[in-house]
Design a protein around this nucleic acid. Structure first.
Length: 844
RNA sequence: GCGGGCGUGAUGGAAUGGUAGACAUAUCGGACUUAAAAUCCGAAGGGCUGACGCCCGUGUGGGUUCGAGUCCCACCGCCCGUACCA
């Protein structure tokens, strides 16, 4: 019987589980290594081949680090609150907890079939009461420290579904599931003060070993900008309008001011004769969705208030307009407009015929009346700033403003506070009790967790109230601190809450006294390697960093950052097939013929796209495991290409790695499936074979450290290709090879390790070290040196390896062919490169 | 617009500034077989040539260098993120 993964894989998975092989405990004598995957939402669709990609990578690192002697923490759990289960409950009446449990069981079984070395004793789910308890406890820490507050904010309201939607569920002003329009509505919501951490979140990025792209996205999202806040007095009023600008140097070029339509001063300053026009404009704007309002190609619109602001620097009267190109949620909600040097102001000024005053000299031939000049230049028309460049003028004008008390330097962030309430059922209820007088108090620690109440129906409550409002008995309660009647908060937390701290709970998942034990936390944190998709680049990773920093400032965790090294696996795409009408076909129904594709007699177009049900191109890992085995799936996932690259899945190509594993099996087994004693020898390998082995070990070791698994697999294949035709195979080489194979194809490695007579699991066998002297001895005989003439290869010379300098030149020049080549020309320069090549620079 | 990334055979991809295409898929040829599958061995970037060989070749155009897929500049194309951010 040949290699049969369907038999050996379940056997070893069972062995690992029964013997707690991957159980991790604090051990101060060993160096720790914490490898974490972004835990999945257990959806009804089951695992997707994208999951095993990242999980295989972290599993290889975990197994490698264990063999290197590290104490490895490698846990898995479930981000199990989520909307699909709730929607399913609304349709069927089946409680989301039931659906969630079923899906989790499916996911767990699918993941276990791939042979990952998780410490399953640490499995957790964000929906479990024990976990919810501590999520709520941390939220209350935020409340206690004034980092959570309630405010009236605009939310996405979907009238057709009578529910609030998250930003992620809204695209182009419509609910992505049904296409129903979504409008803005003011509601009282819980907000988390993430803006208080904007600066730390930005600064601490510098020391993290994260991909530059992700750091850049976080920096962008936080959006720090340096400028000035400037106060403009309003003519005939005590009020002032404060504007934020990054170009205070252009203050002399301000020809009007603009308030956002929602700006609180709009009403107060609008002159009676303009009131009707302004009110009409403001209410028209309010009707627009945020999508319509932010459409880039929209014409500028606005209305004049009739009021004038006084430019503090020169006393100039500038008209105050209301326009929706200024939004209330950035800066101060008001701007000074400098049309000569800002493209948006320029466009507005041209439309409403407002003056354009040049204050920075543009480059030759640029006319600010025709187009704004936003580059550097020399200040003009600006009194005491004349002659300065932009940077000097900024500093100068800020100094002047501070002296005159008309403004000051100011740093503004794009980051907004985090809207933390959802009008949902399947989430952690916000543990707050509201008093009749409008005050609120927190649910005491000993009453946590506060779980979602039992409901008959999971849809929105009466009058569009959140679903929790249906549980009237639950809502009506007594405030345990005051003894007065109160009402529970009707909101739940967003799905992000659990993932903000789950990596801490993995360290100590069963602790009843604390969210994590201090000593264990000190031992295991920070996470040394965190692998997941780039779709969480901003939201999850920013939210988790925020919570972690709050916990750090409260002295509850020992590191300022949770995830030291981050790596993003690339997206996996797949072939899709569609006909001229745009209908998709399942790949099994497609036939290929001379490079074209057909189904039902129609010619199809093949495309590489994201996997999705509607395109019929989703690959289920279970099917692939059944057909090829888990080790093949793992190897293929790694062999496809660089981990971070977006790349297409091609099930046919798995045959290649399966063939490789078949060959590996036969390195040890004969045709009758017995250990092949005839070929396996106890002789030491010759220098060439040992050299290749050592090079392979060195290459795989450094490639694992750098997460370049695709080339690891290629190195393993090369070794096998060398060993396969050999009639005598040194046991030493075979065993070293199996050790290096172990992290990649652990079932195969355990099986062969056992077949060769080892009685303990290969999981903790020491990783082979590289014999440096064997590396040098590798090419004991001859190697080929390419000979270049003026950089082009003209000959090849066989000579001893590792030659350099004069030695190399002498050998090369004594070669007949080289001598002939050099005979006709004048050699200007000789460039011998040690162990590589020789280049002759010649003339004639 | 801004930020990040990517362009290499039929295909996935490899290559500390030093032999471009490792490794694999698909293809073709051979061995084994009554036959097929499996397995093993071999061929293969393009062009010219009977052959030895020669020329061209990593999106395009320049540059640095003895030598560039790799470094620098400009451009073209594609992907991802983000945007009236003052």
């Amino acid at each position: 019987m040949p290699y049969a993964p369907e038999q050996i894989e379940p056997k070893w998975q069972d062995f690992w589980a029964r013997n707690d092989i991957f159980r991790a405990e604090v051990d101060q004598t060993k160096q720790k290594y914490y490898v974490l995957d972004m835990f999945p939402y257990p959806s009804g669709a089951g695992l997707h081949v994208g999951h095993p990609l990242g999980y295989t990578a972290t599993d290889i690192v975990s197994r490698y680090k264990r063999m290197k002697g590290f104490n490895v923490l490698h846990p898995m759990g479930w981000d199990s609150f989520g909307l699909p289960a709730e929607r399913y409950a609304m349709r069927t009446g089946i409680h989301p907890a039931i659906t969630t449990k079923e899906n989790t069981d499916t996911f767990r079984a699918q993941i276990q079939r791939l042979g990952f070395s998780y410490d399953w004793s640490r499995e957790l789910a964000t929906t479990s009461p024990d976990f919810v308890r501590w999520t709520q406890w941390i939220f209350l820490k935020l409340v206690e420290n004034n980092l959570a507050y309630q405010a009236e904010v605009a939310v996405n309201w979907c009238p057709a579904q009578s529910t609030v939607l998250s930003n992620e569920e809204v695209k182009d002003g419509k609910y992505i599931e049904t296409g129903d329009p979504v409008e803005r509505r003011l509601m009282r919501q819980w907000m988390l003060k993430i803006t208080a951490y904007a600066e730390k979140l930005l600064d601490d990025l510098d020391d993290l070993d994260w991909p530059d792209g992700i750091k850049a996205m976080q920096r962008n999202w936080i959006g720090q900008s340096h400028g000035a806040e400037i106060s403009f007095a309003i003519e005939g009023s005590d009020a002032q309008v404060k504007v934020f600008t990054t170009r205070p140097d252009t203050l002399f070029g301000a020809t009007y001011c603009v308030l956002a339509p929602e700006h609180p001063l709009v009403d107060a300053i609008t002159r009676p004769e303009q009131r009707e026009a302004v009110q009409t404009y403001v209410s028209e704007t309010a009707k627009l969705s945020s999508f319509e309002r932010s459409e880039l190609n929209r014409d500028k619109t606005g209305a004049f208030t009739g009021a004038y602001a006084i430019n503090p620097v020169n006393g100039a009267k500038t008209p105050i307009w209301v326009a929706d190109y200024v939004t209330m949620d950035y800066g101060t909600g008001a701007v000074m407009a400098v049309p000569a040097h800002d493209t948006r102001d320029h466009e507005f000024a041209r439309k409403f015929e407002l003056p354009i005053i040049e204050v920075v000299t543009p480059e030759e031939g640029h006319d600010v009346q025709a187009e704004a000049w936003t580059g550097d230049g020399t200040l003009v028309n600006s009194s005491f700033l004349d002659g300065l460049d932009v940077d000097a003028a900024k500093a100068q004008v800020i100094e002047w403003l501070e002296t005159e008390k008309a403004g000051q330097a100011k740093v503004t962030y794009r980051l907004r506070d985090w809207l933390f309430s959802r009008q949902r059922y399947w989430g952690e209820p916000i543990p707050i009790i509201h008093g009749e007088d409008g005050s609120y108090s927190t649910v005491p620690d000993q009453d946590l967790p506060l779980l979602p109440p039992k409901l008959e129906e999971y849809g929105p409550g009466p009058d569009g109230a959140p679903p929790l409002a249906r549980a009237t008995d639950w809502v009506q309660t007594t405030d345990p601190t005051t003894g007065k009647p109160g009402r529970r908060d009707l909101n739940t937390m967003p799905q992000w809450a659990g993932s903000c701290w789950y990596y801490l709970r993995f360290i100590d998942p069963n602790n009843d006294l604390a969210f994590v034990d201090t000593e264990k936390e000190r031992y295991w944190m920070p996470v040394d390697l965190y692998v997941g998709g780039a779709e969480h680049a901003v939201l999850h990773l920013l939210y988790a960093r925020f919570w972690h920093k709050v916990l750090y400032d409260l002295g509850l965790v020992s590191t300022a950052e949770p995830f030291q090294k981050l790596f993003n696996q690339g997206m996996i795409l797949a072939h899709s097939y569609r006909d001229a009408q745009g209908r998709f076909y399942e790949p099994e129904k497609v036939e290929e013929s001379s490079g074209k594709f057909y189904a039902d007699g129609k010619e199809l177009v093949q495309k590489i796209e994201k996997m999705s049900k509607s395109r019929f191109n989703v690959v289920n890992p279970d099917d692939v495991v059944r057909e090829f085995g888990a080790d093949s799936v793992r190897l293929y996932a790694m062999f496809m290409g660089p981990l971070e690259a977006t790349k297409p899945w091609d099930t046919a190509s798995i045959a290649g790695v399966r063939r490789f594993l078949n060959r590996v099996w036969r390195l040890v087994h004969d045709d009758d499936d017995n250990v092949d004693m005839a070929r396996l020898t106890d002789e030491a390998p010759d220098a060439a074979l040992n050299g290749q082995l050592q090079k392979m070990i060195a290459a795989v070791t450094s490639d694992i450290e750098e997460l370049r698994f695709n080339t690891c697999v290629a190195r393993l294949m090369e070794m096998t290709n060398t060993l396969t035709p050999m009639s005598r195979r040194p046991r030493f080489v075979i065993e070293q090879f199996i050790l290096v194979l172990a992290p990649f194809a652990p079932h195969m490695a355990e099986e062969l390790w056992g077949a060769l007579g080892h009685e303990t699991s290969i999981a903790y066998a020491p990783w082979p070290s590289v014999a440096e002297d064997a590396l040098d001895a590798a090419d004991a005989e001859l190697k080929e040196y390419p000979i270049q003439i003026n950089g082009k290869i003209r000959a090849r010379v066989m000579a001893a390896p590792n030659l350099a300098g004069e030695d190399l030149l002498n050998v090369v020049k004594s070669d007949e062919k080289v001598a002939a080549l050099l005979d006709q020309v004048t050699v200007l320069r000789e460039i011998p490169i040690r162990d590589k090549l020789v280049n002759f620079v010649v003339k004639g």
